[in-house]
Design a protein around this nucleic acid. Structure first.
Length: 555
RNA sequence: GCGCCCGUAGCUCAACGGAUAGAGCAUCUGACUACGGAUCAGAAGGUUACAAGUUCGAAUCUUGUCGGGCGCACCA
């Protein structure tokens, strides 16, 4: 019996009590999601539920009475050893040893699919993140989303969703012109224009552009900056793409703002919005009445000079995504863009969609970084930006991704580069990976001894040691953690869970000898513990895969 | 001024409204001539910023105050 099945059984017991006339509840008063916790205190059993306290009031009975009605229906179920009523009305449930042990077998059989659930099967998600200008390298501000956005996508996939990761290239507008003019200036040895790009990378781009096309310097001065702009654009975009692939973050689709205009998607988007009646003209400009839907002020789509605004591209892009068949469009934005939330939701509403369903804007707070006890400030002008590549060079892909993913994004994150490079528990990725390597070592040693646990008898009832049941319980939690992480779009829950799972394994390993040694002989216990090890390793590996972090067999 | 986010151990942070608020780091004390000591066992460390409220139960929900971050374009 899994925790999920237990929850179902508990709900069923409530329904039975109602049908038997023992308590009176409306169908809506029976919780659809029954809470089943793993208590911290082992005296409280393997699992605990608060169902009695939830229904007591509506049923007009005391929690203890409600608890008793549920308890005696659970006690007769196969696999449940005991059900006790405790405290204000908690039900503390203990499984038979074999019931818990069966988890190991199920995990081994499920393999890489363990933890995959069907919560979102049939749903199509578009996850857009980073979406930087192609005018420079990706920096720390983008890095958090590069890791977290990718992990969110992986978790949603594990939850059964069809997911497309998308990068929106802001390749239109004045900043691109400044970019071109800056490269040109460096190549021609002239002054970088006011407000232009100063970083050393501009020099590098200039050299690369000229090296690839020496004739570019011969172009007439009036047109030359545009040639530099296009050449630099191509190089910089390529560089961003290579960096992200090396970071284990893959985008299925790269959509450029220019292409939205070239393909007529912008006009189509505006037409779509007009049909829904939220577009109007005023003071020579065309506006979207976003104030119909909670925005502070209406937004301009077409300026008085006839130019489309950036906002026009955004609205068209949203309509385009929905036309491509996505049920939910997720936007991951930095805190410096939180002012966009209401207007983006308003766009969805203006397009005739439900902003509570079809669009989701997640805001991530900014990342600070310390080195040598001092904050490393981000400043493109001063040229001391930390790029995603810098971070990876310092700490490696696994540590960088893990450190960025293991915290919720709604609070600002402070990372200490000096601690990240040390292989201590300040960087728990090593703790988790070590558990995987350690299990791998045990299984390797077993094979060297000629022990084939797969073809041996697995006896789940032998796994009764506290450290064994603790590990089994941790393994059994995984699918529920995936469900929560997916529903809340919080992949940090996977990381935190993996740390608990690793702890459970290390504790088990410390006390429970697996392979035959001085005091232990090859027998059923060895085989059963090897099954448990295999299940633990599989779960660790599956969890790390959801974070895009490697699961090494040796470290 | 208005809006969003945050305030938890010395530090970095956890905790889908549940039982005694937990980890790691730092400090202190222990554990292998058997499977990887990058581990494990233990000690110490708290008025969950503050004040009211909601309820069987609040770090979590509501309101207010204080403190910090970010944002309020016919820029992109």
């Amino acid at each position: 019996m899994t925790p999920e099945q237990l929850a179902t059984a508990i709900r069923h017991a409530v329904v039975e009590a109602v049908e038997a006339g023992e308590i009176t509840l409306e169908p809506s008063q029976i919780p659809s999601d029954v809470t089943v916790d793993r208590p911290r205190n082992p005296e409280h059993g393997d699992y605990a539920t608060n169902i009695a306290m939830q229904i007591a009031k509506a049923a007009g009975v005391s929690p203890r009475v409600a608890a008793d009605l549920v308890a005696h229906r659970l006690r007769v179920l196969a696999g449940i050893a005991s059900v006790e009523i405790a405290g204000p009305g908690f039900l503390n449930i203990t499984f038979d040893a074999a019931t818990l042990g069966e988890v190991a077998r199920a995990v081994v059989f499920a393999g890489e699919m363990y933890g995959s659930i069907d919560r979102y099967s049939g749903s199509r998600f578009n996850v857009e993140f980073i979406s930087a200008n192609p005018t420079g390298p990706l920096h720390l501000g983008h890095t958090r989303w590069a890791a977290v956005g990718d992990a969110i996508a992986r978790v949603l996939v594990a939850a059964g969703a069809e997911v497309q990761c998308e990068f929106y290239i802001n390749d239109r507008g004045a900043q691109m012109d400044k970019f071109g003019q800056s490269i040109e200036a460096r190549a021609m040895g002239t002054e970088v224009p006011e407000g232009g790009y100063q970083g050393a990378y501009v020099d590098t781009l200039a050299r690369q552009v000229v090296a690839a096309d020496p004739a570019i310097v011969q172009i007439a001065e009036s047109d030359r900056w545009q040639a530099f702009r296009e050449a630099g654009y191509g190089l910089q975009l390529r560089q961003q793409q290579d960096t992200l692939e090396a970071f284990n973050t893959h985008f299925d689709v790269w959509t450029s703002e220019r292409s939205l205009h070239a393909s007529g998607a912008v006009e189509r988007g505006l037409a779509h919005l007009s049909e829904h009646g939220h577009v109007y003209e005023s003071e020579g400009a065309v506006w979207l009445r976003t104030t119909d839907f909670d925005d502070d002020k209406d937004r301009v789509l077409v300026k008085a000079d006839g130019e489309f605004t950036y906002f026009a591209s955004d609205t068209a892009y949203y309509v385009d995504k929905r036309d491509r068949g996505f049920d939910v469009c997720i936007y991951l934005l930095g805190a410096d863009h939180h002012g966009y939330v209401n207007r983006l939701r308003a766009v969805a509403a203006c397009a005739g969609d439900n902003p509570d369903v079809n669009i989701e804007v997640l805001i991530g707070q900014l990342v600070k970084m310390y080195k040598g006890g001092e904050e490393v400030r981000l400043s493109k002008r001063a040229g001391n930006i930390i790029t995603l590549e810098d971070l990876v060079d310092e700490v490696g892909v696994d540590a960088a991704r893990y450190s960025l993913i293991r915290y919720p994004v709604d609070s600002p994150l402070t990372l200490d580069l000096d601690l990240l490079v040390t292989r201590s528990n300040d960087n728990p990725v090593f703790y988790v990976q070590y558990a995987h390597a350690r299990i791998s070592s045990v299984l390797r040693n077993a094979a060297d001894l000629g022990i084939d646990w797969r073809t041996s008898d697995f006896e789940p009832a032998l796994l009764t040691h506290d450290r064994e049941t603790g590990l089994l319980g941790a393994i059994a939690e995984f699918p529920r953690v995936v469900a929560t992480a997916a529903e809340l779009r919080e992949p940090h829950r996977i990381a935190r869970y993996l740390e608990e799972l690793a702890t459970a394994y290390h504790k088990f390993y410390d006390v429970c000898r697996v392979l035959p040694g001085a005091d232990t002989e090859l027998g059923p216990q060895t085989y059963s513990r090897l099954w448990l090890c295999a299940a633990a390793r599989q779960t660790v590996a599956n969890g790390l895969a959801m974070l895009g972090v490697s699961a090494p067999e040796r470290m």
